[in-house]
């Protein structure tokens, strides 16, 4: 037994605290922010009404103009607040799509099924044209990390059990991944499910009864007949948290074409985060046997 096995494992919380405490902070605050803050403080001291109080005054004026009883007036005030574009269903749907469209990164857990009894589960992170997929293929292959660079049309597959690093510009030859994923890694212009979400802007949808997703009430939207690939159509279901207009869960089921029955489901873990670039770097770890290294960098 090596000494390393006897060494106590570091506490993740202590490590995380040290990292967060020492996290680099850009020099600041910016001079413009200081000036704007001083101005805002002066306004507040001079008796200017803050935004929240102005909103409350607006709602009270509405109640008095309507001239109805208290209960009805309160209902009107609530209706005024509720009827704002951001909170209407259409606004919520579009805002949720817009968040995905504008996000510079995402993290999600995917479950992909449809080929007989095969079911793949994976965790995907993506940023700036690069992707990192983690999954356990079981058996001899075990845990796998797939790193893809769309711009370079190159992927690196790391097999932990075998300490093997395989370069590939055609992942379909290497691993049993869905065609949509391997084509994407090879640089083909095939949208992943998250890419596809951004194409739903302005799409016609139906709503289903609200559901609870991991303890959160979610509005459910279904877009039918979405064109997934040439010759194929799919139904996409979105579960959206109404207050933040954030997608909690999504599902794509191909209903026609050669991939009929193919289902991708995803739980969104994070959106538009500052993900560390290092986790996407196509680099072979020490101790791994390298196979099929590309001739050019």
């Amino acid at each position: 037994m090596s000494e390393a096995n006897n060494r106590p494992a570091p506490d993740p919380l202590d490590l995380a605290t040290d990292v967060l405490r020492g996290a680099p902070v850009p020099a600041g605050p910016p001079a413009e922010l200081v000036a704007a803050t001083i101005a805002a403080v002066r306004d507040r001291l001079a008796g200017a009404v803050p935004a929240e109080a102005l909103a409350r005054k607006r709602r009270r004026r509405i109640m008095s103009y309507v001239g109805f009883g208290t209960a009805t007036a309160a209902a009107v005030a609530v209706a005024v607040v509720m009827w704002s574009p951001a909170r209407s269903e259409a606004g919520m749907f579009e805002k949720a799509i817009e968040k995905v469209e504008k996000a510079k990164s995402f993290r999600a857990k995917f479950t992909i099924s449809g080929d007989g009894n095969n079911k793949l589960e994976m965790k995907v992170s993506a940023r700036g044209g690069k992707v990192r997929i983690e999954q356990d293929l079981g058996g001899n292959m075990g845990p796998v990390v797939i790193l893809g660079d769309f711009a370079k049309k190159t992927s690196l597959v790391l097999l932990r059990n075998n300490k093997l690093a395989m370069w590939s510009d055609d992942p379909a030859e290497t691993l049993p991944l869905p065609e949509a994923i391997t084509k994407r890694l090879a640089g083909a212009d095939v949208p992943t499910l998250v890419d596809a979400l951004t194409e739903l802007k302005g799409a016609k949808y139906e709503t289903l009864p609200d559901e609870v997703v991991e303890g959160h009430k979610a509005k459910v939207f279904v877009v039918k007949g979405f064109k997934w690939e040439e010759g194929e159509q799919s139904d996409i279901t979105l579960w959206i948290e109404p207050k933040a207009a954030t997608i909690l869960k999504f599902r794509l089921e191909t209903t026609t074409g050669k991939s009929k029955g193919f289902i991708q489901e995803g739980i969104l873990l994070g959106l538009d985060e500052e993900l560390d670039e290092g986790q996407f770097e196509l680099k072979v770890p020490a101790g791994y046997q390298e196979v099929g290294k590309p001739e050019k960098e």
């Binding site: 857990k109 589960e121 965790k123 983690e134 356990d136 845990p143 796998v144 990390v145 790193l147 790391l158 932990r160 290092g278 986790q279 996407f280 770097e281 680099k283 770890p285 791994y288």
Partner: peptide, 12 residues
């Protein structure tokens, strides 16, 4: 979450 995520070979 799959705990294998932290044990898989990353970059740096």
């Amino acid at each position: 979450d799959s705990p294998l995520a932290d044990r898989l070979a990353p970059g740096p």
